[in-house]
Amino acid sequence: MKKLFAIFTALVFSVSAFGQLVLKNDPAHSRIQFEVIHLGINDITGNFDKANLTINADQKNFVNSKLTFTVDVNSINTHIEARDNHLRSADFFDVAKYPTMDFVSTSLVKTANNFYTLNGNLTMHGVTKPVTLTLVYRGSTVNAMNKKTTHGYQVSGTLNRSDFGIGPKFPIPMINDLIRIKGDFELTAD
């Protein structure tokens, strides 16, 4: 009976693993950008230069896939060193205490061809909140350099910095509460 149970368990795990494809991003071609309105008159933009996205893709039904991404907050880059250092400080992200921003999907709903509503939990600055983002599958192609199939995904949405305790000393007329984000990722299978 134990042998039969072991065979059944192995069969279940092999069937559930079939149809799964683990996609990981290419760091040289992946980035998360953000935009915030400063003084009510100007967009300030920047990047997180180090971000990793993993998709445990269900090849039979993509909406059953699981997505996670992690951002190295210390990699913030607005092209102004003094501002970047201030954003890393305890006034904003406090990277010494909270070095990463992490997202784990909870659901994926197809809304149109290659467009999905992505729900999940975002942890930033020690606070975890549910967020809703848009995921777009941009297609796939074989990369001539490494002969691997490369998939393109874009994640976008808006967040309120106050929900995560980012920059509480800076009022909305100075730095808007609404932050627009966009992540562009090229991913390949392991």
Rank of each mutant, 00 (worst) to 15 (best):
V155R: 00
Y98A: 08
F92V: 07
K182H: 05
P27V: 05
L187H: 15
G139I: 05
D163C: 10
V95G: 01
Q20Y: 15
L135D: 03
H125Y: 13
P171S: 06
L178C: 09
I76S: 00
D102Y: 15
L108R: 04
P130V: 00
A82T: 03
I172K: 11
I179D: 01
V131P: 00
I7N: 08
F93V: 11
D58R: 02
N64G: 14
A144E: 13
R161S: 02
R31K: 15
F93Q: 03
A6M: 11
K60W: 14
S30C: 11
V73E: 14
F164G: 03
S162G: 14
N52S: 14
P171C: 09
I44H: 00
P168F: 05
N74Y: 06
E186L: 15
D190G: 09
V131G: 00
V95P: 00
A96I: 15
L11H: 12
H125D: 05
T141D: 15
I175N: 04
E186V: 04
A82N: 12
A17G: 06
G157R: 10
G152Q: 03
K129W: 02
F13N: 14
V155A: 00
G126C: 11
F13L: 15
D163P: 10
S156P: 00
M1P: 13
F8M: 10
M101V: 05
F8R: 12
F48Y: 05
D26A: 08
A51K: 12
H86C: 07
K129M: 00
V36W: 01
S162P: 04
N77F: 03
T106E: 02
F115N: 08
T149Y: 01
K97R: 03
T149C: 02
T111M: 05
D84F: 03
N121W: 15
D163L: 10
